[in-house]
Design a protein around this nucleic acid. Sequence first.
DNA 1: TCGATTTCAGAAATCGTTTTCTAAATCGTA
DNA 2: TACGATTTAGAAAACGATTTCTGAAATCGA
Lengths: 340, 340
Amino acid sequence: MRVTIEDVAKKAGVSKSTVSRVMNQNYHHITEEKRQKVFQAIRELDYRPNALAKGLKQMKTSTIGVILSNLQNPFWMKVLEGIEDLCQEEGYSLMIVNSRDNLAREEENVKGFLMRQLDGLIINPSLGQNPVFQSLEAYHVPYVFLNRKVQDIQADTIVVDNIKGVSLAVDHLVGLERRRIAVFLYPPEGISPRLERIEGYLKALRANRIEVREDWIKIVTNREDCRREMQVLLEAQERPNAILSTNNMLTLDILESLKESGYRVPEQIGVVGYDETEWSKHLDPPLTTIVQPAYEMGKAAVKRLIERIRAKEQKVQLAAETMELEPSLIVRRSCGGLGD
Amino acid sequence: MRVTIEDVAKKAGVSKSTVSRVMNQNYHHITEEKRQKVFQAIRELDYRPNALAKGLKQMKTSTIGVILSNLQNPFWMKVLEGIEDLCQEEGYSLMIVNSRDNLAREEENVKGFLMRQLDGLIINPSLGQNPVFQSLEAYHVPYVFLNRKVQDIQADTIVVDNIKGVSLAVDHLVGLERRRIAVFLYPPEGISPRLERIEGYLKALRANRIEVREDWIKIVTNREDCRREMQVLLEAQERPNAILSTNNMLTLDILESLKESGYRVPEQIGVVGYDETEWSKHLDPPLTTIVQPAYEMGKAAVKRLIERIRAKEQKVQLAAETMELEPSLIVRRSCGGLGD
DNA sequence: TCGATTTCAGAAATCGTTTTCTAAATCGTA
DNA sequence: TACGATTTAGAAAACGATTTCTGAAATCGA
């Protein structure tokens, strides 16, 4: 039934040690004859070493854990692809879990990974902090934060320049003579990209000498909310001529709300989205959007994590680093102005 | 640094056995006094048992492996959510991997899971067969196939009734006097849902006494292909007045191709999609679509897998079963006819 | 009070690997 | 021929938990 190294050893007429050495290409002092016998036995029995036993002995599982805060969002699927590709290349397996922006679940996930002796963790934190992250330090397990910064913890963090992202969008709108820009966002709640995007909005307005209107900063939590706020916005005497969305899911709600109110995009109001998705170009009208290098983020996280794993193996200290990637803008028709 | 059961035992002044018994709430014959001491030590040392050691000894990892063929597709994210929810409830952890419709990767994934001694596997097979699936039987590891049927292997399989799905769509179109229905699909390549959807199309046409036109069955592999085939279709003398898509990604390409050709949906041509997504309702026009119970599929797979794991533990035989879930139709505006 | 039973808890074996230790066999050289 | 050095490969000790075995102490019944 379950084949162990002992079965192979018996079949090949050698000791367990010899089989192990052959398995791990530790051919140091092993005669060709025995080696062949072992190979033969392995093949005949379809032997696969038990990863638990191996990991237990070697104190190394060759597995990286990934905690994502929202698997539903296609943005993360692209990040994941980057993570997968580099891990595969480097011989690491992946264990992926979904915290769904829930602190308790996130804590469970971290603890589960610690117990499993994973070699390293990539975490997209659900909030700006979580007490369980302290354990990571205590356990000396290498880890990298992704996309969101965590307060009070000195750790490697891969992020995208959100200030820059938003300012690309604002500058684009201003260039099209759309200076009356409202912004929609989810409640910041200490989540760094949200905070930075609103900060970027304020900065970019200032840079363009546009006066900030508090009532054009709309914090919404769900579709209903979005719809309501949109009505308030559109029924005022002074209306914006552009809306900046700060999240790809939110963008869909914004477009729907506008459609319901009978507003035409981009003729009456322009819209800029955040994140490029499969469907961005299929929306009506095709969406101008700020794109974050998702795939590269995934790769960068793995790259840094592996550096850290190596450093730990070789007992060298590594200073915590924040790596900032560059966003860009894809111009389509949702802000008008372009001939396209 | 790394805290083991021995450290806890020492600190509490008891034996490893006692600590283990307390950890596993095996209070059978343990005095309150020692129990408290152990608890105290565990708390002070922030002890977490090593899952590898535990798994090795117990021959059980409390982990289920999931092999998905395409993580990019949002359909699978919903399936995954169902899987996650039930696993969480039942105390299983998840290990998720992405085979990307690649046989070699799929084989690697299966082998990796076997080595890790996972308690059970949920597999969305990339093709109709893969030799590595034989190993599953040999290793006596419980597993369930999801969404796609596998030939030559008697195994539990969770699917959706594709014949029914397509016929819902065809009947809907016929009800709106759209009897000239073309269908687009990816190359079947022995993948059961694709085969069944085309079969369902033929059946539904027959049931409605519509003659099948071979040149209205379009097999495409990518966006370019789709565009090309669409042109051929629209430049013919006899044109369809409805298009049935058999995949959610394909639907986007179809809509784009139609838009490019200047065709208006639904006035000139109706479109039915497959799978409900975040964006279906935001497309232009909002999409009428066949919806598969994704979340329920995930739950059903876990439910059956756990039955099988239990059966193995209790050494009872279980006959392979195919469970078929029911699709339904969401009617929006992409086929016209509705007042909405 | 004595032997039998029950209650408690530690010692030791086990899971399947890797790795260190040890020893036999072979070889080269004096 | 003898002896140390080098190959070669098995025996045994980890890794960190669980679980079986074992034995001492406490309790019970007569």
